[in-house]
């Protein structure tokens, strides 16, 4: 495994020797990774290499998968996310997530955003919060006159930005994105990539993507994952995106980013 000796950045998440098992099967083994603050970090690699599995370790969403077991530590602000004293609900409030297929609630646009605020006991003005979140997600101008309409009445790209707005509304410190553009057309994808550039001023973003060009375009750091002979995922290499795409140390990384992956 290759990690740049020192990431010369302030980091918010430190993944230490994390392995994930589904029943007896090791899906991911021995990952070390540091997520730098206010940067976009891309997780890339072929299908089944465990990159989405790792992403779901970062907000404990793996808790809901029957038979899934996580070993190792994920440090976040001095605490280990997998410590017994940690409340996973609170973790998810502070580390938001956007999914592969847009999944707005079958409620109004307004309610989609106000919901997270309400369950988390937001004390401020909810109307203002909805407006700010929609503006942050570059959706406000398109929906400001139809906040009462169902979130599902929007187009796919708008739905995904609604999901981003929904995640931003509860003021997370980190935003996890699991292939957020794979169900979208190129124009919607472009808008979301622009949006991510804006968002990294305020948020730390970790994105899983199958699209190598996307990783190259938007991320500052890239982690490459692959599988070994027994189909167990592992992290091959992690470093600044320019180096991973320019002069990767590992031949497997070079093959993958140059599109020569078998």
């Amino acid at each position: 495994m290759q990690i740049d000796a020192v990431i010369d950045e302030e980091t918010v998440l430190q993944v230490e020797n994390v392995s994930v098992y589904y029943g007896a099967f090791p899906a991911l083994r021995g990952v070390y990774l540091e997520i730098p603050k206010n940067k976009i970090t891309a997780l890339i690699g072929p299908s089944g290499c465990g990159k989405s599995t790792l992403l779901r370790c970062l907000n404990r969403l793996n808790d809901f998968i029957l038979g899934a077991r996580v070993e190792g530590r994920v440090r976040f602000g001095g605490m280990n996310l997998y410590d017994k004293s940690v409340d996973p609900v609170e973790v998810r409030r502070r580390i938001g997530m956007v999914f592969q297929v847009p999944n707005p609630f079958p409620k109004s646009i307004y309610e989609n955003i106000a919901y997270g605020a309400r369950i988390n006991g937001y004390q401020g003005n909810v109307d203002e919060l909805v407006e700010i979140a929609l503006k942050d997600a570059a959706l406000w101008d398109e929906v400001k006159d139809k906040l009462k309409n169902s979130g599902l009445s929007l187009s796919g790209g708008q739905q995904q930005r609604l999901c981003i707005a929904r995640a931003l509304a509860i003021e997370p410190e980190v935003l996890l994105m699991d292939e957020p553009c794979s169900a979208l057309d190129p124009i919607s994808t472009g808008r979301i990539e622009e949006l991510m550039h804006e968002l990294k001023q305020k948020y730390t973003i970790v994105i899983v993507t199958h699209n190598i060009q996307q990783a190259a375009r938007i991320s500052s750091y890239t982690a490459f994952f692959s599988t070994d002979e027994s189909r167990t995922g592992q992290m091959v290499e992690f470093g600044p995106t320019t180096r991973i795409f320019g002069q990767a140390n590992d031949p497997r990384t070079r093959d993958y980013v140059e599109g020569r992956f078998g």
Binding site: F64, M97, F99, N103, N120, I170
Partner: peptide, 12 residues
Amino acid sequence: SLRQGAYALGAT
């Protein structure tokens, strides 16, 4: 996916 969306917002 709807349940996960809610959990990801810190819903119990």
